[in-house]
Design a protein around this nucleic acid. Sequence first.
DNA 1: TAGATTGTTAATCGATTAACAATC
DNA 2: TAGATTGTTAATCGATTAACAATC
Lengths: 183, 183
Amino acid sequence: MSNSDGTCSSEDLAETAGVTSAQVRKDLSYLEGHGTRGVGYDREDLKQQIRKALGLTSVHPVVVIGAGNMGAALANYKGFEKWGFDIVAVLDVDEERIGTRVDGLMVEPLRRLEQIVIDQGVVIGIIATPPSVAQSVSDRLTSAGVKSILNLAPTSLKTDDDVSVRRVDLSTELGILAFHLQS
Amino acid sequence: MSNSDGTCSSEDLAETAGVTSAQVRKDLSYLEGHGTRGVGYDREDLKQQIRKALGLTSVHPVVVIGAGNMGAALANYKGFEKWGFDIVAVLDVDEERIGTRVDGLMVEPLRRLEQIVIDQGVVIGIIATPPSVAQSVSDRLTSAGVKSILNLAPTSLKTDDDVSVRRVDLSTELGILAFHLQS
DNA sequence: TAGATTGTTAATCGATTAACAATC
DNA sequence: TAGATTGTTAATCGATTAACAATC
């Protein structure tokens, strides 16, 4: 998997990621730092280079809209911090949920969205609401200046061209698996 | 979006999905049924054709491993049924969770995995566990005959070549958004 | 018929891979 | 030096798009 001297080869990395070594070398060649021919890549150095290339050297405040199971799963997920994403608020419209805590954060009313985005300098919004309100939440996020949205609601969003939207649709993923089942 | 006579054009569909109309026509040309030149696609017919092509005309039993927030979010998600996925069981190792209910399903002990897969004819497994146990769960699923896995744990799985794995990694999604933030 | 829209081709574009000179 | 492994090229592969004849 990797050598005891803290280096690893493109072949090691390829094995771990399940891609080809040529792919790994090509991708890593875009980084500023480089590997060493005959030796490989220094793991710590590589980690830093990748962070830098992805813009993960500073902390990005994130807001989660929707405090249902999915919103709670997100708030509880520890993997984000490691990459410099800081969930600063979880919002919901449901009076039952407002005021409860998810992972130490108090659920706040959706009406505070704009204020929180501005006050906390939020740059990424995660939509974990029912599909019916996803578009309006998206509109409010972008109006408040958020330019990156992760959409977990099973609906496609209309946004300005300068807004980046990533959609994760679990039904689609299952659909693809179902397709594979046949062949 | 669509015409009152129940038809819609590739242009309509492209608009909704956020892709080009050429793409839509190309993709739909693989279906058995066809659109009608000068008219468009019959929406109901199209729906059926797509279901058929994806193998969604029968019900696929699905098992969810992990009854944390993510597992609960999945079990509660109503979007699956519509596409013919039936979550038949939610499994966990945590004694605290076993016996509790998520969306009407009793959480069962992980040790029953193989039995449930066989008894219920499970064809898809969804892994919503901590990453540390994802590989072992994957191994047990495949040993029991499951050939399709949706992996929500932030780790990459090693499986035989005849197993289809889809991975959904929210950290990666955020990473991509962070990259867009820079440019 | 005239207008609309498909199905499909050929061209384009981009991503992946194999291969190997460079070099540690 | 000999062996290992990168960085990069050129070839390959596949996916997307523009364009238009077919045809409703």
